[in-house]
Design a binder for these strands. Structure first.
Lengths: 344, 344
DNA sequence: TTGTATGCGTTATCAG
DNA sequence: CTGATAACGCATACAA
């Protein structure tokens, strides 16, 4: 019988109250606190409400409650598959706790950021989950620092905000150490866009691992990139044309790693026999890759879930202290890494 | 100076009014209808508002206006890259027209659908854009049919709803005709999940093209699938093991087409020399594919934009008649299609 | 041009 | 257990 009568004009509590011969207060109670109402009226009210197809107006409820029960997740780029699973994790937790989630893609545009900031300042959403690594334009630092705002995946050390992160430096170093352990000595790094802190952190991890392995730091082996397939391919082509080319590449993300693999294959090299490649993120691309990509897996779903939990906790228990949660990654070994070929 | 004073407790119009020595009505007017207020008070009010970091409470505004100025886009699966660009198109138009967009991923779960339906019935969003091909559980047909609801990409002939579509049958047929024109005679089809109408439409187009070309319909050449890479690969492996294998495959989407390519390569076949492959959608995967995938491009961004326009128009001008817009696709020729090899 | 008063739909408080 | 009332924050009709 769900959806019965759900046509025609929409009704308010006053309509239901009138038809039931009770007050709106009773209707409200019958619907939200059934135990505070006599079984008889309770049923009557439910019946009429059903008959009329009555739905409580959430805006009215929100105004009264002074809470929208909703979270805003801001991402740079909705098309990046990395974010989808993370959003899912957040949505799941939010749902469990009676919150809804609004997803906003800013494309890095200030005007758009400002619009979303307005939604927050205008209390249309209660809390903010930022995957952008920075405060949206229009939101002051002070305003954010004490509010229900959490940074995810991308840190910003200048901001004193709650955050859910992974140890990019550490896991990048692990990736490189993995290559070194197999015997690689010329290990290149395909960088991400340097404007983003995760790129700088992963490069830092690369450098640290080299130095711990006692390997020389060769600037020629640090190729600039921007996380894209095409740039990854071009950069790798250049790397392979070096007089003393690398035998392994640690890429700042999966998509650019696919570019690296392609570049190698196009000059007739076999991956992993002639070139080992390792990525970062473990997106869907890693499985589709040929051969399947060895990469560092981030616990995306969990990251989103924890972030939502943090924001909602702050909302319910007051700001509290800023927490910084560091979650664990995992090295997923597929088929793009092997010991280097013997020197010819 | 943006964001100045945006700390501390949040203020209401009453606060501003008090400090400015005017009424809340004047504050409201000064902020939203500046011309209806004397320049002097207008500036005074703006100044105080700025100083206090005042932001109008959008919930209050919405309750008063009886409109949330926001649209809900429902998708099955946020991880499907097909939807991201479409959402972007909708967001862009919405923004232009002062609407915000809420994105919801249902994963096909009824409970989740019901939750989103509640947001609509509870007037937290004014209109619905459905990429799911069906009404969310909890939303009755009558309720939707006269309201600001539009179906995108995935039709549902049983519902008399506005819709933004492409001619799946026609373009699938075009894809197959393209293969036929090059000389292919054994053309297979890798189907999508049959529960979805777009899958059935594309198969219909495949069949129609075969029959128009005077080619026999061979059930063995219709391989079941579900749009995934892995299934595409397995199905294609089976296809290639047939006594009289196809020389070309039309796949229901890009991801499964990549699976088809991989299957061919794994048994030592060259694409497109030994097997031609054509996809549908033109997602990012088509470019990353090796070789780059020939496919049918859907105007995703435009689809989202048109859908948003339709919903907002209905909201502003009353329901009006149900429109059905069919947008044009395009055959994007890359490198996975060639004439069949001469019979050995 | 400005102020007063009212209502949007809901729920909490308080009295009965 | 129930009803009357007030309040959430804003924007408008109306009066001044």
């Amino acid at each position: 019988m769900a959806g019965a009568g759900a046509s025609g004009p929409r009704h308010t509590m006053a309509d239901v109250a009138r038809r039931a011969g009770v007050s709106t207060a009773t209707v409200s109670r019958a619907l939200t606190r059934p135990d505070q109402v006599s079984p008889k009226t309770r049923e009557l009210v439910h019946e009429i409400a059903e008959e009329l197809g009555f739905r409580p107006n959430l805006i009215g409820r929100q105004l009264r409650a002074q809470a929208a029960n909703s979270l805003l997740i801001l991402v740079q780029d909705l098309e990046n598959p990395f974010y989808a699973e993370l959003i899912k994790g957040a949505e799941y937790v939010a749902r469990e706790r009676q919150f809804s989630v609004v997803v906003g893609g800013t494309d890095g545009l200030e005007d758009v950021e400002r619009l979303y900031a307005e939604q927050y300042l205008g209390r249309r959403v209660d809390g903010l989950i930022l995957l952008t690594g920075h405060l949206p334009a229009g939101l002051s630092r002070k305003m954010a620092e004490q509010g229900p705002v959490v940074l995810v995946s991308e840190d910003n050390p200048e901001l004193a905000l709650c955050a859910v992160l992974v140890d990019n430096v550490g896991w990048a170093a692990q990736a490189v150490a993995h290559l070194h352990a197999l015997g690689h000595r010329r290990i290149a790094h395909l960088c991400g866009p340097m404007a983003r802190i995760i790129s700088r952190e992963r490069r830092e991890g690369y450098r640290r691992a080299l130095s711990q392995a006692g390997l020389p730091a060769d600037p020629a082996l640090e190729a600039p990139g921007d996380f894209s397939f095409e740039t990854g391919r071009r950069a790798t082509r250049a790397l392979l044309a070096l007089p003393d080319p690398p035998t392994a590449i640690f890429c700042a993300n999966d998509e650019s790693a696919l570019g690296a693999i392609r570049a190698a294959q196009q000059v007739g090299l076999d991956v992993p026999r002639d070139l080992s490649v390792i990525g970062f993120d473990d997106t869907m691309l890693a499985e589709i890759s040929d051969p399947p990509l060895t990469t560092i897996r981030q616990p995306r779903q969990q990251m989103g879930a924890v972030a939502a939990e943090m924001v909602i906790d702050m909302l319910e228990n007051g700001p509290g202290q800023c927490a910084r949660r560091i979650l664990d990654c995992e090295l997923v070994e597929r088929s793009t890494v092997a010991a280097p070929a013997a020197k010819s």
